[in-house]
Every structure is written in C-alpha cells, then in structure tokens.
Design a protein around this nucleic acid. Structure first.
Lengths: 222, 222, 222, 222
DNA sequence: ACAAGCGGGACTACCCGTTGTT
DNA sequence: AACAACGGGTAGTCCCGCTTGT
C-alpha cells in the first residue's frame, strides 16, 4: 500500500456492452471449436477479441460462466437453424415424409457448399470434456439434443401415420439418426480434411428415410 | 504437497516397466476421455495411476509423447477390434453383403450390452482439440479412420459386385457411414445418458445396408 | 458480472452524499475489523454497502484515502467516548483516584454487557498491517493512543499528588495500562469467543489501581 | 501444444527439503508480522526466501496451508518458551507465588533488552484477520491461548492455596492477564515506536500479582 | 526404475482505478 | 452523485519438465 502504483493509461472504451459480449463469445467459440474448452485460455480469447481480461470478467463471472453462455447461444442459434429449415421444408412440400426428405436435403445442400471442413459442433466439444464442466452446461446441451429428437420425432410420427412403416423397421431411435450422423460426420470431416464428407453422409440419411417410407421414392428422390 | 513428508526410503512399488507404462496409459485414457487432453494434467494422471512424475517422464518424453502413445495404442486396439469382428463375420456368412450385415450386427450387439454410456472414443477427443495437438497425432488418427474406410470399402465393393446397387444409390461415402454413426452416437449417448442409443443407431446402419443390397433382405434381417 | 444485464436506466438509490459516505465507512469498518485492510476489497465494501465503485471513488480518492478516513473517524469517536466516560466519572466522584476507578469501571460495565465478542479495534487492525499503510495512517493512530496516555497521565498525576504512590511502585507506563489491557483483551476475547473476557480484564486493571493508591480502597471497591 | 515451450534452465537446487521449508516459514513470518496475512503475497515470501513459487507449492498445498503451518510452528515455539521460563522460575524459587513473580519477571527482562519494538505476535495477526482464515487456524491459536491459561491457572491455584487471596479479589480471569498485557503491549509498542513499553507493562502485571498475594511482598519485589 | 525437490511460466480470478454516461 | 464498462496489473494456483538421489 505504501507504494502508489502508476495510474493506468485507460484508453477510451467501446460503449456497447452487448457488442463487446458478442465479440468475446465469437472469439471464444472459434477457439473452443479448434482447441477445446480447457485448451482455450481467457488470455487467448481476449487477445482474439481485442479486449482485456478486465472486460472478460466483467461480462462473465468465470470461465465456466462463459462456457454456459457459449453453449446457450449456440443452442439457440442451432434451434433457430433447425426451425428455419423445417419451416422451409414445410413450405416446399406437403407430405410429412417428403418434408423430412427436403429437410435433410436442405442441410445436405448447405454442407455441400463448404470448401473447408466445418469448424465443428460445440455439442461435440462439450461431450469431449464433459467431466470438466458443470451440470448447467450438461443441461443446456441435453436440452438442445432433445429439441432435435422432439422435432424430428413429431415429423416421423406424422409420416408414419400417413405411410406406415414396413414391418421390422426399427422405429426407435430414428429421430436421433440425423443428429448422430451430423456429429459423427463433423469429426470424420475434420480429421480427414474432407469438407464434402458431411454432405455425403447426410445424403445417406436422406436415402435411408426415403427407403423406409416408400422404396420407390428412393430412386426418384436421389 | 507434503506437509508431513513420508519416509524418504519409500521403495518403488513395482519393478515391471511395461506394467507401469500400461498403468499410466490406462489412467491417462480414462481421464482424457472424460476431460480431454488439455483438461488432463500429468499430475492427475500419475495420481490416478498411483505413481509420481518421475515415473511418467521416464516412460514418456513429454505430455505430447504420451498423447502419441495413447493414440497409437488406441488405434492398434481399435484396428484389432475391427479385424476380429470382420473375421468373425466372414466365418458366420459367405456372402459379402451378409458379412457386412453380420459385421455391423456384432458391433450393435456389443453396444447393446452396455449398462452405462461408453466412455467415448479417443478419435473424437482428438478432433475436439485438433488445433492443440501436433501433426504426428493427426497422422495416427487419420490412418486409423482410413483403415475403417479401406476395410469397409473393400467389402462394399465385393457386395456391390455380387448384388449390384440400385440406380441412384450414392455409393460414395457409404464406407464411412458406420464410423460416422459410431462417433456421433457416442456423443449423443454420453450427453443424454442413454447407453443403448449407440446400438440403436448402429441397427439403423445395418438396416440401411440391408435395404440397399436387397430390399427383401431387410425384413428378414431385422 | 452481468450475464443478464439489468435495465440500463437504473437510478441512483440515494441522493444524500453524507449518508452514502457513512454507509461506505460503516461497511468498510465492519469488513476491515473482520478481515484486515488488505483482506478487504473495494468491491467487497461497495457490495456490502449496496453501492458501486463509482460511488466509492467519488467519495474517496483511493483505498488509502478510505483507510485514512476510517481511522480518522474511528479515532474521533474513540476520543469522544473517552471524554464522555471521563466526564461522567468526574461527575460521579471528586477524588482523582476515585475518578480513575469509576472511569475504568464504566468501561468494564460497558464491556460486561456484550453478548458476543466485540468486533475489535481498528488500532489493532492497523498495527497488524502497519508495514502496508502509509505515514498518515500511522500518525492518526499514534495521536489517538497518545490521547489516552495524556488524559490518563494527567489524572494519574492528580491522584498521585493527592495520595502519593507507595515506594517502589513503577509509575512509568501506568497511563498506558488501560489501553494495553483493552487491546490485548479484545484479541483474547475474539479468539476464545468469550465476550466477558474484556470486562474481567478491565476489572483487574481497576483493582490494581485501587491497590496502588490505597490498599484499603481495593476491598471496598470490588 | 503444437508450440514446444523452451526448456527451462533448471539450476541446481538445494536438496534439503526441511531447510527449504523453514526458510519459507521464516520469510513468511517476518512478512506476515509486518503486513498481515492478506497483505503478504506468495511472491513476496518466495522472493524473501530466494526461492520460487514452484517450491512454495511443493511444500504447502495453499497459502492457507502455509498459515496453518506458520501458526503451528509459532504456537509450538511459544509453548516451549513458556515452559522454559516456567521451569527456570521453578528452579529459582520454591513458593508458587514467588515463582509467578519470577516467571513474569523473566519475560519482562527479556522484553527490556529490545532496542526496537518487537516484531509482534502471530496470535494478534491472526485475530486481526480472523474472518479470512479457516477453522483450523482458529483451533491452533485457541489451543495456544488456552495453554497459557491452563499453565498460569494451575500456578495461581497453588499460590492461592498457600497464601490465600484477600477478600474481594477477582480471581476469575487472572490467569489471562499476562497474555492480555503481552498482546496489548505489543500493539502499543509498535504503534508508538517504544521498545521498552512491553517490559514496563509486564512489570505492572508482576506488581499487581505481588500486591494480590502479599502486599508487603510488593515493595520488596520491585 | 522410480521418487521427490524444485524452476519458471501460464492459468483463472480478482484487484484498484478511470472513463463516459445518466 | 452514482452507475456500469473497461484497462492493466497482480493474486494464488497449478502446470510441465528438469535434476538429483536412491
């Protein structure tokens, strides 16, 4: 206390707290997708965002708080993305089975346009370090995955009600298949450096659904 | 750490270097699958293995060296696992398409017996922190994934040569589907806490293959 | 800190600057007595006072400034307390020696009513971290202690002039004894959790003074 | 992980862990007595000890662990100090009351030789920041204070059994008076910069005891 | 082969103080 | 007068890996 510290040369600061927060989240997301959560330092995040640690800990109570905010934002964007494609599919087709095929196709087309492997999925990042994060984070991711299951399950039920499912088709778990393939394909795509791998895998999902609901459909749809 | 230092003449517990190395790898694998690589400390690994850092750095030149050894061992075990199930399938069936279905079924049955979600896959752990690890690690994982592609690709070619594939079936990427679903299903299974999810997803893969090679096959096989 | 930012139009709660300053000092005093000066953060003070740092640095130029203000206010209150009890004693008795005994007795009675150990004394807090604080703080505390010495020394001189002191009685330092016992008893009282310890020790001081000035007095006074 | 950190230039290190630990404790004690616990940084301690933080956290699990070790060592030395003076007094005198006077006198003589104010007492440092430290620390200090009470209480009982106490003498709390005055006098001594203040206050304690047990004794003893 | 003391650096979290705004 | 965003630095903690010793 007896030594008086030199007064810091506080420069003028951006006066848009929401934008600052978003910049921090953007920087964090890029780094976490590339290096994982534990592998990403707060210093790295603030450097990428062009800010300081003071700003970081003003906006997030801790690094875990950032993780929760990151997952929350990602889950919201993801749910909106899902809803958007689903709404689009429901405009393009009337039959539930057809809507499903269009829905998957929209994702496949989106992935087909990538020229580099996608950055990855935060849900997978979470899963890879689940033992490190708290129960709140788990809840956020779990709720997001269940959102896919619910939405697709409802559509599958509609389709099955209209078309029936052939005997012996395992209905159970079918609503999880798209997300499963998405997550797995992201991993293969990144490791192998093949940006089109995701689209190719999604097309198999679509083809499978086509075969299930109406074998002749499959040929026409591809 | 030692506020009450233990007796300085503590003798090493084991004098079997290979066993010590394996214990370290086992402890490391458990922790890395749960927390990721960056989230796992050398201190934590040696504590879990009941050893000290001296032992760790005697067996591995660095934490990177451990990562390479871990991935190498995992890839070897995985390749052996694949080869074992494939050999089993080739004994149980003669037709290549049937062999494929049996092969996938063996994995599904294996996964169906789990009473807790699988610990995860080191390939996914790698992918989640790829930006942190070196090129050697990437090579090991890439080679492992290509091993699946090659092995399944060959079998798919045999099956297609025998049965043909219907027009419009996207042959491309079909050899990656099993691994894709495996990786994705591990993620969903862990996040949702549903141990049987993996088996359910693999059964869809099997069903898809059955539909592709011979629609009537599908009904009998399920 | 604000993951869900509150409405930006939050109005200041109070517009009474003196009251705000007192609230800050009150909060600071409580915390400093419990945790020391270095152990008390500005953030903690403003949180306890229900204010923000902006308010703090409006009223105090720095944390050092707060320390000076805190000690100054405490010393003033303490001097007033001393003067009040001395005036009271001088009304209750006419003989200087009797006045001294009453004076100490008033403090003892005050301390006897505590049901929990006293919060402590800022002079002791200062002494415990003297190496951290600046010369101004030292001057404030020193002046406060010398105030006790001067006031009691004068009264002791009056009493000695009237009654004499027996041979061999060490007059030196006698004026410091009350404050010494006060400070020491606060410490023991807090550590041992015995609220009545302070009063018991002060009664010994009073008894000692009684024995010094007139041994027969002692029996009557207790 | 991809950037390999430069190998640290580890210099040869002292291979006497106990001596290292003592050096850390010595440095810490000096600093804590001067600046308090919260005001003393680990960096400051290791700098004063000529070591690094790696060494610090090898020997102490945390800064709180250091505090416990510091208080424990201090309490042990203090108890030994007490026992030594008591044994000395018991050799020099046979009457319990006389032993008490000698005992206090030995401490007073010790304090009289100081040419600068004593560094202070860790018990007082603890009390000044009690709200910051854990229950273990409180137990250590409490036990130390109770040791004084027990030891002096026993001797006072012996003396009272031999000599009796005059009517109206408050026996309660008498065993705490010496420690009380010690603690309080340290504080005054430091703030006022008067090294002999402690001895002067202790002599009053001795005189008080002499008056209590035998008024004529007091004149002879001084 | 393994244990342990220790160096030096990086991490998260928090500090105090300043600025612009209301 | 009081608030919130933010800068820059330091706090305690833990990290990896080197070295010496057994």
């Amino acid at each position: 206390m007896s030594e008086s510290p030199v007064s810091p040369t506080a420069r003028p600061i951006s006066r848009d707290p929401d934008a600052t927060r978003e910049r921090l989240l953007d920087a964090a997301q890029t780094l976490v997708l590339a290096q994982g959560f534990a592998g990403t330092s707060v210093d790295g995040i603030v450097a990428a965002a062009g800010l300081t640690k003071g700003a970081f800990f003003h906006h997030f109570e801790s690094k875990h708080g950032l993780a929760r905010a990151l997952l929350t934002r990602y889950a919201e964007q993801d749910a909106a993305h899902l809803a958007q494609h689903m709404a689009h599919a429901e405009r393009l087709a009337t039959d539930p089975a057809q809507q499903l095929l269009v829905f998957v196709g929209l994702f496949a087309d989106e992935m087909a346009e990538l020229s580099a492997p996608a950055a990855g999925c935060l849900y997978a990042s979470y899963a890879a370090e689940a033992g490190l994060l708290d129960a709140d984070a788990q809840r956020i991711v779990r709720k997001a995955l269940l959102g896919w299951r619910t939405r697709l399950g409802a559509k599958l039920d509609q389709a099955a009600a209209r078309h029936g499912l052939p005997d012996g088709v395992p209905r159970a778990g079918l609503e999880d298949l798209l997300l499963t393939v998405f997550e797995g394909a992201f991993i293969l795509s990144r490791v192998l450096g093949e940006p089109h791998l995701v689209a190719a895998q999604l097309r198999h999902v679509r083809h499978y659904l086509a075969l299930l609901f109406d074998p002749p459909l499959a040929r026409a749809a591809s």
